[in-house]
Design a protein around this nucleic acid. Structure first.
Lengths: 74, 74
DNA sequence: AAAAAAGTAGGCATTTATGCCTATATTTGA
DNA sequence: TCAAATATAGGCATAAATGCCTACTTTTTT
C-alpha cells in the first residue's frame, strides 16, 4: 500500500472520481445538479484544486450509485 | 450497499475511525501530534461533529498505517 | 469548419473547518 | 477511592471550501 502526500492524493482522487463519473454517464453539470452543489466545485475536485469534505464524497457516491470505497481505490 | 444521509454518515465514519485508532494503539493526542493537527479536531471528527476533508483522512490513514478504504468500510 | 456541449478560471461574499487556548468531564489504573 | 490519563466542550481568530456569477477554453458533434 502506498501513501501519497496531500497534493498527489487530491489529484489522484480527482482523476478517479472523473473516471467513475464518466463510467456512470454523468456530465459535471448533471452530477452537480443532482447533488445540489456548484458545477465549478466538481471541476475543482476533479482537478485536485480543492480538498473537499467526506460528506460531499458520500453524497457523490450516492448520486453515482457506486461504493464510496471505489472513489478511494487507486 | 446502503447510503446514509450526511449526519448519519459522519457519525458512522467517526465511530469507525475511533475503532481503527484504538486498534492501532493510538490516543487522540498521539494521533493529533503525529498529524500535526489539533486534538480537539480528532475528537470532533470521531463524534461526527465536523465534516473533515479527504486530505485529512488520507493523512490519518497514513499515520495509522491502515488502508484509507477501511475508514469508509462500515 | 462551425456550432453546441462540456469543462476551466477567477472574483467576491458567506459558511465551515481548523488552530489555539482554557476549562470540564469521563475513563482508566493504582 | 483517588489520581492520572484521556476525551469533550466552547470561544475567538484565521484559513479554506462553497455558492453565485460571468467569461473563456477545450472537446465533441454535425
Amino acid at each position: 500500500m502506498e501513501y501519497l502526500d496531500e497534493s498527489s492524493f487530491l489529484i489522484a482522487f480527482g482523476k478517479n472520481l472523473r473516471k467513475y463519473r464518466k463510467l456512470q454517464g454523468f456530465t459535471q453539470e448533471q452530477l452537480a445538479n443532482d447533488l445540489g452543489i456548484e458545477i465549478s466545485q466538481i471541476s475543482r475536485i476533479e482537478r485536485g484544486v480543492i480538498n473537499t469534505s467526506i460528506g460531499n464524497i458520500n453524497s457523490i457516491s450516492k448520486v453515482l450509485k457506486i461504493d464510496i470505497k471505489d472513489l478511494f481505490d487507486f
